[in-house]
Design a protein around this nucleic acid. Structure first.
Lengths: 190, 190
DNA sequence: AAAATAACTTACTTATTAGTAAGTAACTCT
DNA sequence: AGAGTTACTTACTAATAAGTAAGTTATTTT
């Protein structure tokens, strides 16, 4: 099926994700990826024709991950607060790594991307917002969560707190993110 | 004092600000600025030695603007809610122009910047957060505003809502930003 | 009116970028 | 065992990037 190295493609995705979330989409090149993996840049082009294709692959992976999370949450007897934790936790991990989320990273470079990529990102955004919205609705219905806005607006408020929270943490420190995270959870409880 | 054109420098700042907030810091070049202004790229280098110097000038300008706003708000009999409006309004204008704030834009490229620029951005961030925090405290003391977190945390929540709100609006639409904006204000009133 | 200076342009250089065509080694299938 | 396929490398090209040295022109200063 394949020769030499089975997981070069996966490694490129791993480093690509890291570079996008740490340095930003327009701040790294295929040469950077190649250097990091001790391969030639033509090898990166072999697996992903261009940078956009790499980005699309990463967005697709994110969509798949959230789809799998969605299934997991649907059959789960977890509390809705714990379910929300599944959306919050990745941001805490990002903050620890001094990185930002892929959506936040792409948001700044959004206007430089071709329409095909933009559409895929829209899909991802709508998906995440929809999932959080649904979890919030469920929690309110069960009396496990409290909030006063519509579920959509509440989802927007929470996700913008988290997304900009990790961005801000790189500038003003991790403590600010921690305070945001705690406040987001506290508000939903009382 | 000066020959030919008095405001080329100002024009470069204007276009530079637009490019950073529309395309992202690492997505435009001096050649792009030169093309836009019908000058040569050496002329851009004449006014700002390098891209970092242009960024520093823009951050400095922001700091000055907020300093002037600070003085304006201190001597004002405006309601604290109106004062907060002075921090919110710029984001609504950005959203309309499908742009993002300079701090949000730089946040994604933060790790590619030299220490001197990072320090200046930290300064700007602390300044804005401090001003919003102070306005919130004042509003609570006067009984004009209501919130349950510390003023610092409340400031973080509001500013992250706005910063990520304009980012999100480019992907999912302006309506989402509008709902965030309204919710932010509504929460402080009731 | 001459000298100095500010605001440029011309004409480069050097480095990086994305991308590709052609070759090669290892493995897989028949 | 030979043919095909996969996963690369070698060795380029063409375009863009940042940056600079030297020359030019208009204005200001003396």
């Amino acid at each position: 099926m394949c020769a030499r190295n089975t997981d070069t493609k996966e490694e490129i995705l791993r480093i690509g994700k890291h570079f996008i979330q740490y340095y930003g989409y327009n701040a790294f090149s295929y040469a950077d990826i190649a250097r990091e993996l001790n391969i030639k840049n033509a090898a990166v082009h072999y697996h992903f024709r261009g940078k956009e294709d790499l980005l699309i692959a990463l967005v697709d992976k994110n969509i798949e991950n959230y789809q799998s999370l969605s299934k997991q949450l649907n059959h789960s007897k977890m509390s809705t607060l714990s379910k929300l934790g599944k959306f919050i936790e990745p941001y805490s991990i990002l903050c620890e790594a001094e990185s930002i989320c892929i959506i936040g990273s792409i948001a700044s470079d959004y206007k430089t991307l071709p329409e095909s990529v933009k559409a895929k990102i829209s899909l991802l955004v709508e998906m995440v917002l929809g999932m959080v919205e649904q979890t919030l609705s469920e929690g309110k219905k069960k009396g496990e969560l409290q909030f006063f806005e519509s579920a959509r607006t509440q989802a927007l408020l929470i996700m913008t707190n988290l997304a900009a929270g990790v961005q801000l943490a790189r500038i003003s420190g991790k403590k600010d993110y921690e305070n945001i995270r705690k406040a987001v959870i506290r508000r939903l409880k009382k």
